[in-house]
């Protein structure tokens, strides 16, 4: 894999809500296998940016292109969220959105949907093909749960899990769609230092073992500085800086934007 190849290219992305400009000509690039952080004060437009890329919002202007490995590039504009996921881009949510009343394992199995195909007839007659697919699905999902360290919870209902475990389950669920690019929306929010430390290792593991490109929104500066290859900084819907963690830490614009509010890192 060539680390200079792009995985995600965003050019001039603009999003208006009524008269309000939430995103103003955003340019961003994530290369294959790279961890990129997107930081900025609350309300800067980071989650809106994610929602545009994943097809939940339709942006007013701009281009979004992904480059799945070994396939033709795909323009994401106007694609439905499930199609975006099918092309290999998966995400987690800031305010955990698990399927509460399903078990932990089922949460992951649901995400195998777009990589499997048995239909109604298969389900009703339990054909050998369906049974085989089902068994593979269970095995694959269990493997993912082991990877994120949730194997002991397989049969628990998702809403019964502790907070940190729910965040990790979101990651496992996103991984089940077999992405090449993973978007994490504040994965460390609400975690204690020990949990954050484990998360740090997990994200690095995903980068190394699964060769994933990762774009994450995060407020925990220690985590951002330790795992990111590059950092983008947003404020009031615009991109105000980008660079390596070292460059960002010294950038006067960034410091100013962050001093505007409480800097909790």
């Amino acid at each position: 894999m060539n680390k200079t190849q792009p995985a995600l290219e965003v050019k001039g992305l603009t999003m208006d809500f009524g008269g309000l400009r939430a995103l103003d000509h955003i340019d961003l690039e994530v290369r294959q296998g790279e961890i990129v952080a997107l930081i900025g004060p609350n309300g800067a437009g980071k989650t809106t940016f994610f929602n545009c890329i994943t097809g939940i919002y339709e942006p007013t202007k701009g281009d979004m292109i992904i480059h799945p490995r070994g396939k033709e590039p795909v323009r994401l504009n106007r694609l439905k969220p499930n199609i975006v996921t099918e092309h290999g881009l998966a995400r987690t949510f800031q305010n955990i959105r698990l399927f509460q009343k399903m078990t932990v394992l089922e949460n992951v199995m649901v995400a195998r949907h777009c990589r499997t195909k048995s239909g109604i007839a298969g389900a009703i007659f339990r054909t050998p093909k369906t049974r085989k697919e089902e068994a593979e699905m269970v095995e694959f999902s269990y493997g993912l749960l082991e990877k994120v360290g949730l194997a002991q919870y397989v049969n628990e209902l998702a809403h019964e899990l502790p907070y940190g475990a729910q965040r990790r389950l979101e990651i496992a669920r996103a991984m089940a769609t077999e992405p090449f690019l993973l978007l994490l929306d504040e994965p460390a929010a609400g975690m204690n230092p020990k949990e954050t430390n484990e998360l740090d290792k997990l994200i690095t593991k995903l980068q190394v073992e699964d060769k994933l490109a990762i774009l994450l929104i995060e407020h925990d500066m220690k985590l951002v500085m330790s795992i990111s290859n590059r950092i983008y900084v947003m404020d009031y819907g615009s991109m105000i800086a980008q660079g390596t963690p070292h460059e960002i830490a010294e950038n006067p614009n960034v410091i100013k934007a962050y001093l505007g509010e409480a800097f909790d890192a």
Binding site: R97, Q100, M109
Partner: peptide, 19 residues
Amino acid sequence: RAWIALREDEVACQAMGID
């Protein structure tokens, strides 16, 4: 499972690749 996921959270369900 797709039905139940849809019932639980429509947005997350779509984001997991379900039509």
